[in-house]
Nucleic acid binder design. Structure first.
Length: 423
RNA sequence: GGAGAAAUGGCAGAGCGGUCGAAUGCGGCAGUCUUGAAAACUGUUGAGGGUCACACCUCCGGGGGUUCGAAUCCCUCUUUCUCCGCCA
């Protein structure tokens, strides 16, 4: 959520940047400013009424003490009127604040100046590409065929146990998953991230804190009995560690990594491009997450991008990095880099990581602040990224490393799998 | 799941319905002393809003109520602790 004071002080900039997202920002922003003015006016009125009422109460107390009950009773009437007035004022203040908030919840983050304009993924800017696309043998297959051939992932079984989108990994497939998780976590902790194991269900306040609620409710599985949500990403429990927290400046920067399964309803996505591991209801992901000083959050974003790069380089997978255009940029993000691995057998790119800087957008909702050098509380910046999402990395490995003899395990992973080929 | 107790400032811990934004201790910060440090002593030290700055307003787990007036009384929710039961 954007800060009202920032909107007030940078109205033109905010409108201009938001319009890159092809939304009509002028009215929204004007409304915010109007509502905020109203809100502050009512607040001031209420404050004055309360102040009057407070002094009156003191006077009444004094009168009682000095035995002047009659005079006191007279003042009580006046006090009653003030009370009514303050009740009305506080009701209209609440209504106004609520209206303002509802408005603010609907306004996405302001795209960074680097964000290219554009409406669809076609306008994303490719900024980097690495790794050779292998020349596969004649009978090369997509990963879902390979999974079946080597009996390492069973989609039908998952279908039986739960439903579509809940695959069962077995044998070397299961081991490869575990190896990837361990490998990613090791890379991340070596880079300075502290490993966490986080809850897989979150409450409403947490869903709100990272921006999934109230709008993207339909994307999460909801356990209505206990009013909890299955996490769609470790970002939710991970970032909410810092909800309502005031850090000292010396605690920054903070880096966290964690493995969690992720649950997504993916309502409405069907068709060929969701085949196999391409899009699932449950998948595994290792996440990295940072809390940064506003002055160096963009430097931190670059560091995260380089970190993810180093992992993909080591795995020797063909990948590219995209700078997302305004139209493709997530609601809460100000700048996002997507990593895509090339799926050779499908002849298409698969998103395997998304690294974003949210600046103060989440922090404002979370009330995540640090005490700056002037002793004032200041919103911190939050960032996160996947390192990495497992299924598509797995798809990438299966397809790009397939040989007539079997699936060769990337060298960096072999210490973790304990085998070097799936055959 | 059953029974009981509790929730106060960074922490610990007081708090007759008005003089309580809140005693006291610890911690933090500044100073005195010291070559320096420690100890001791002195002062200072919650958060948010508002203002050029004051004033002023709000906050004692959350929400609601009683009262002219609530940290203090009532209702309710949540959380924590103790005991019992169940259990990976």
């Amino acid at each position: 959520m954007l800060q009202v004071t920032f909107i007030r002080e940078n109205k033109e900039l905010v409108i201009e940047r938001l319009e890159k997202r092809s939304i009509d920002a002028t009215k929204m922003i004007n409304d915010v400013i109007d509502f905020d003015e109203d809100r502050r006016r009512i607040q001031a009125e209420l404050d004055n009424t309360l102040a009057e009422s407070n002094t009156l109460s003191k006077e009444i107390g004094d009168l009682y003490k000095s035995g002047q009950a009659q005079k006191a009773n007279l003042l009580k009437e006046k006090s009653g009127k003030l009370k009514e007035a303050s009740k009305e004022l506080s009701e209209s203040l609440n209504a106004k604040t609520e209206a303002l908030n509802q408005l603010l919840y609907k306004i996405p983050n302001i795209p960074n100046e680097l964000v290219p304009s554009g409406n669809s993924e076609l306008d994303n800017e490719e900024i980097f590409k690495a790794g050779d696309i292998p020349v596969l043998h004649e009978n090369a297959q997509p990963h879902w065929e390979l999974a079946k051939k080597y009996d390492i992932i069973d989609f039908e079984l998952g279908n039986k146990i739960t439903g579509a989108g809940f695959p069962v990994y077995k044998g070397k497939g299961a081991r490869l998953q575990r190896a990837l998780i361990a490998y990613f976590l090791d890379k991340n902790t070596a880079a300075g991230y502290t490993e966490y194991q986080l809850p897989h269900l979150v409450n409403e306040a947490s869903g709100f804190g990272t921006g999934q609620l109230p709008d993207k409710e339909g994307q999460m599985y909801h356990v209505t009995e206990d009013n909890l949500y299955l996490i769609p990403t470790a970002e939710v429990p991970g970032t909410n560690i810092f909800r309502d927290v005031v850090l000292s400046e010396s605690e920054l920067p903070i880096g966290i990594t964690g493995y969690t399964p992720c649950f997504r309803r993916e309502a409405g996505s069907y068709g060929a491009h969701v085949r196999g591991l391409n899009r699932l209801h449950q998948f595994d992901k290792v996440e990295i997450l940072r809390v940064e000083h506003p002055k160096r959050s963009h430097e931190a974003l670059d560091e995260m991008v380089n970190h993810v790069k180093s992992i993909l380089d080591e795995l020797k997978l063909p990948y590219r990095i995209l700078r997302l255009c305004a139209g493709d940029l997530g609601f809460t993000s100000t700048l996002t880099y997507d990593f895509e691995v090339f799926s050779t057998a499908q002849d298409r790119w698969l998103e395997i990581s998304s690294v974003s800087n949210f600046e103060t957008f989440q922090a404002n909702r979370l009330k995540l602040r640090f005490k700056n050098s002037e002793g004032k509380n200041e919103l911190a910046h939050t960032l996160n990224g996947s390192s990495l999402a497992l299924p598509r990395v797995l798809a990438g490995i299966l397809e790009n490393y397939q040989t007539k003899e079997g699936i060769v395990i990337p060298e960096a992973l072999q210490p973790y799998t304990g085998f070097n080929i799936i055959d």
